[in-house]
Simulated scan of single mutants.
Amino acid sequence: MNNYFRLTRYFTATSLVAFTVVAATLMYFEHRQASFFQNVQASGARMLGGIQNEFVKRADVVARRDLLAVNEQGSVNLTRLFSNALWASDLSPYLAETSTVDFSVCKAMPDVVDAQGKASATPEKKECFKGAGAQLQALATFAPLDARVRETMRDSTIFKIKVYDLHGITVYSTEMAQIGEDKSGTSAWKVTRAG
Rank of each mutant, 00 (worst) to 15 (best):
A132I: 02
M47E: 05
V171H: 02
N84P: 08
T157L: 13
V113T: 13
A88P: 04
G117V: 13
D146L: 02
L16G: 14
T8W: 13
F82P: 01
Y94P: 00
A121T: 09
R58H: 09
R58T: 11
A138F: 02
V40R: 04
A140D: 14
A188M: 05
T186L: 10
V70S: 10
E127I: 05
S83N: 12
Q73K: 12
Y4Q: 15
L7C: 13
D102Y: 05
I51M: 11
K183P: 03
F36P: 03
G49T: 04
A45Q: 09
M47V: 04
V163A: 03
S89H: 12
N71L: 14
N39K: 07
S43E: 05
T170E: 07
F129Q: 00
A18C: 14
W87H: 13
F55T: 08
W189A: 01
G50R: 04
F11Q: 13
L67N: 08
A18H: 15
S99H: 15
D165K: 01
R80N: 13
F19E: 06
K107Y: 00
T157N: 11
V149Q: 02
M47G: 06
S35G: 06
V149S: 00
F19R: 12
A88I: 07
V105A: 12
M1W: 14
F55K: 13
K57F: 13
F19Q: 12
A42D: 09
T152K: 08
S92F: 07
K160S: 04
L67E: 07
G44Y: 04
V149T: 05
R150G: 07
H167N: 07
H167L: 03
I179Y: 01
H167V: 07
A63L: 05
T98P: 01
T25H: 15
R150Y: 03
Y10V: 11
E127S: 06
V17A: 12
Q178A: 06
F159C: 04
G185I: 01
D114Y: 05
M176R: 10
F82E: 00
H31R: 12
T192P: 02
L67M: 09
R193L: 07
T157V: 08
V76F: 09
R154A: 09
K125R: 07
H167G: 04
N2T: 15
L145P: 01
A194M: 10
A96F: 13
V56Q: 10
D182Y: 03
A188D: 12
V113E: 11
F5M: 15
G44R: 06
K130R: 11
F82L: 10
D102A: 06
C106R: 00
S187K: 04
F19M: 15
N2Y: 15
F103N: 01
